[in-house]
């Protein structure tokens, strides 16, 4: 059992993990997630797909907001750019899924420079409002460039294909999205232990001090936006392939706020927290629905259409309670459990 962590060399410090149990459990988790198509039906699997796709976008947002300290309410816009980028390449140019998705990611990344530049001078709520405006601009452009985007009519996406083979089943697409999510998480974890990731952290803690240490603020802030938007663009492209129809309604402003909610509930700055937050926030409404179903049809009869408002209230109340009793987010619960496990029978 570990009693503490001692790092004696720099390579030790930057290793992804030096813990064998962490490696084993991580591999088991991925294997378990890969077995999902064999274990559950297509409806449950659609939640799985939503969770892995959302995780990619949220991990990207977490890198920007949780790690680098730059608040963004423009991620719905990046997601839209990614979705339309992939959609246009797939529909108009017949590109297969992987290159189309990459185009979506890079298009979002490129567009993020528009928002990244103001971030050099703006912070906090001022930056949030600027990024919010980005989503409005993207929506406006989509509606007013019908030759490219089909305007308000939206795009019907083809079935995603991998090397010419169509991923028609929900299971195949889930596994494809899961593979990309694993790559995305590994990518961010690797980034976090590099000079770039540490620069992001330094900027979050005190950007003036970071600059004094030789971190080029403009370069690293723009880089944070570009990487974050790339992830979100990939998520948008996958979303387009999942639903197979996109229009501006799919990328409302609320989406950005929900994404921020996920990283706050999960635990700001933590990759695991972002994933846990995604799982929790995606499954919470379904959990409440199942609870209502268990309580019986009588409840539905009593409340009629107001039963749904009651469900909405419970959803909000659960989130408030989580944040009230676990301000560090859900990852805080995990850290606490791990601390108790490691130190038992001692308190500290």
């Amino acid at each position: 059992m570990r009693a503490g962590i001692f790092k004696e060399t720099y390579p030790e410090l930057v290793r992804l993990t030096d813990s064998m149990p962490v490696k084993v459990w991580s591999i088991l988790l991925v294997l378990g997630a890969s077995l999902l198509p064999a274990l559950v039906g297509s409806y449950a699997l659609s939640f799985g797909t939503t969770i892995v796709i959302t995780s990619i976008g949220v991990v990207g947002l977490n890198l920007l907001t949780g790690t680098c300290g730059l608040i963004s309410l423009g991620h719905a816009g990046f997601m839209a750019v990614g979705a339309y980028g992939a959609g246009i390449m797939a529909l108009d140019y017949g590109w297969s899924a992987i290159p189309a998705i990459l185009v979506g990611g890079f298009a979002a990344s490129l567009s993020s420079l528009l928002v990244g530049v103001p971030s050099l001078r703006l912070k906090g709520l001022y930056l949030a409002i600027t990024t919010l405006a980005f989503t409005v601009i993207v929506t406006h452009l989509i509606l007013n460039m019908p030759q490219l985007t089909r305007g308000s009519a939206g795009l019907f996406m083809p079935v995603a294909d991998l090397m010419g083979i169509e991923m028609k089943s929900t299971g195949a697409f889930y596994l494809f999205a899961l593979a990309l999510a694993v790559l995305a998480v590994l990518g961010v974890l690797n980034l976090m232990r590099s000079r770039v990731g540490r620069a992001f952290l330094a900027i979050r803690e005190q950007d003036i001090a970071a600059e004094m240490m030789g971190i080029h603020l403009a370069r690293f802030k723009l880089l944070a936006f570009a990487i974050s938007a790339f992830y979100t663009g990939i998520a948008g492209a996958l979303f387009a392939y999942q639903v197979r129809y996109i229009n501006v309604d799919s990328f409302g402003l609320l989406l950005s706020i929900e994404a921020l909610g996920i990283i706050i509930v999960g635990g700001l700055g933590s990759v695991a927290g972002a994933v846990i937050g995604t799982v929790f926030m995606t499954l919470l409404p379904e959990g409440i629905r199942i609870l209502f179903d268990l309580l019986g049809a009588g409840l539905q009869e009593i409340f009629s259409t107001r039963a749904l408002e009651l469900r909405g209230l419970i959803y909000g109340a659960v989130i408030i309670l989580v944040l009230r009793f676990q301000p560090e987010g859900l990852i805080g619960i995990w850290r606490e459990v791990r601390r108790i496990w490691t130190n038992w029978p001692f308190r500290y």
Binding site: G41, S42, Y43, S46, F47, T50, G154, T170, F239, Q242, V243, Y245, N247, D249, S250, G252, L254
Partner: peptide, 29 residues
């Protein structure tokens, strides 16, 4: 929210097994 419409359709079709649909929300939904 169109994404939720899609998810709900998955439920009605694969879990509940419906014969037909009559309620279809908004156009994009």
């Amino acid at each position: 929210v169109p994404a939720r419409t899609f998810q709900s359709a998955q439920k009605l079709l694969s879990v509940d097994g419906i014969f037909a649909m009559t309620g279809t929300s908004g156009t994009s939904h």
